[in-house]
Design a binder for these strands. Sequence first.
DNA 1: AAACTTCTCGCAAACGCTTTCGAAATTTGG
DNA 2: CCAAATTTCGAAAGCGTTTGCGAGAAGTTT
Lengths: 339, 339
Amino acid sequence: MADAFSGTAPQLIDVARRAGVSASTASKALNAKADVNPATRQRVESAARELGYVPNAIARGLTGGRTGTVGVLTSDLEGRFALPILMGVEDALGIDRVLTFLCDARGDEAREKRLVDELVSRRVDGIIVVGKQTDPRPPIGRNLPVPVIYAYCMSDDPADLSISVDNAQAGFVAAQHLVDSGRSKIAHISGEAPHSASQRRTEGVQKLLANRGLELVQPPMYGDWSEGWGRAAAAILVQSGKEFDAILCGSDQIARGVLDSLLERGIAVPSDVAVMGIDNWVVLAENSRPALSTVDLQLQKLGRVAATRLFEASNGSKAAGVEYLPGSIVIRDSTIPRL
Amino acid sequence: MADAFSGTAPQLIDVARRAGVSASTASKALNAKADVNPATRQRVESAARELGYVPNAIARGLTGGRTGTVGVLTSDLEGRFALPILMGVEDALGIDRVLTFLCDARGDEAREKRLVDELVSRRVDGIIVVGKQTDPRPPIGRNLPVPVIYAYCMSDDPADLSISVDNAQAGFVAAQHLVDSGRSKIAHISGEAPHSASQRRTEGVQKLLANRGLELVQPPMYGDWSEGWGRAAAAILVQSGKEFDAILCGSDQIARGVLDSLLERGIAVPSDVAVMGIDNWVVLAENSRPALSTVDLQLQKLGRVAATRLFEASNGSKAAGVEYLPGSIVIRDSTIPRL
DNA sequence: AAACTTCTCGCAAACGCTTTCGAAATTTGG
DNA sequence: CCAAATTTCGAAAGCGTTTGCGAGAAGTTT
């Protein structure tokens, strides 16, 4: 298994010689091509194993087709979206031994451009762009020589293929769960107003409520995605004197702040008020008290789908547009129905 | 800048022709070699620019030297260590246009082995292994054809070079800060006992206290790294009736739990008790109430150093052993001295 | 047994670039 | 103004694979 004593890595020609065949035959044997006698194939395979031969992917990539690499270009490495997506990408790709170049553009357009060049120069088989927001963004380049898929974010060029999260559906199912749990006076504390994530989620919430003949106890509150905003908004809400029995938060971070604020004011969760988040950021949701019900955005799956689509694209598929993936609710303690 | 209308990517020979020189001259011109007339160089460079020429890194890698790629092999992608380290690696590497293959072994040894092969097959210029614990681990392979550096974790082969965190120093400075802030009755709630991180940090704490003629109010408490453990341990501590005016926690997560627990019991932070964490996991530390003082482990710097060492190693440096990087305290509200 | 097929295999070209080395052009020295 | 030193350039040989195609060997069909 381990290289016996090595000196310099064995090459195809070495295993060919050891098996008493030519390099081309060895190549065919190892790559499961037709045109080679089973017995010969055996010999070559043994030789390769004995020598600990590892093909040179660089040379292989030169000849023609695939290099067996894809680029993941993100500007949200520190955020919590890129990572699960990346893992999903690896899941889907791993099966076919392709490695991923991870590039962090750090939100810098020039740097992004350079990285794209770098990726193209490496002849990656494809590029997956994962953004930090679901909002449309300009494409990373026009007629690039490799297929590009946008994940989480979406390209504003309709010819591109983007895979994103169905924010409206996420809001919808979150509200649905609250109503199904017997809540009817629901407040909605959202994130940054300009983000499409906020807008779509709110739309989903309102659609569900409308379906059930309900409406929010007051207009959605917009702020940012932070715990601090959650605390502040909850305080404002309480001060307002409005009655409510549930708070649907735009993110788990916000929910966490809301929870703290409520606790501090002696409002019991979930008995007095149910609280629900969106994101399923596990460290936050599982460790809050009570544990937070939320909507899992299925980011890892999103990564898998993106990788699959990339694969399809490099096989000629011309799919375009935006594909939305549904989230699924995760029920913990913060929304347990009242007795 | 953008490819005019492309068809197939321009090659070196295309820019050579356009500049009226041979491919070899073009190559030298673009690579800043000697042996080429400044005027010619100019012409070649313009031609390259006009054509939007991007060299084929694959072909370039074939010939000889560098491929301009490094592998980062981790089993802690979901954790909070790998990422900052990765960013540091990118920082240090970026300057010389090298891209990183990110591989997640998912804690599976066989998978790790396969990934190493895959990386070697890609002829990476080096591999950085980042582990999820600071404890020693077996090396990823014996006489690999590329330099390997261990980051955060360390190899148990003394011939390898590892860059890790100075846990003892982290504990030391944390305790120092508490004592300097006027606390003398310090309790220590640590993480998992078997982890060297717990042990070393505790050692550092005890060393500082000894220096100051103090000791912990009771033996260190070991559990796990979770918020839940922090809450439980704080409760136990309070129940015990022991007096204390500060709690030094093994991690920010633990500290966060401690904070909740204290708050719930009506113990004021920092006026009654100061609380300090270790990690500087910003989302947690900044959003706790009060904001959490902690020790920044400088992971990004660790990544930078690792990449630098890798570079040196591939230039022949034979450094070995473990290099420890100091942490630095980050002061927020949870340790403000009493009036 | 001659003429075809079918299997196996190896030769050689190709992939796109770098690099060595010698030739040609230019400059320098005497 | 000629020989020698210096610059500047291009032809060609790789780098380690894959692949198209033709050549033998072996097996089939008349």
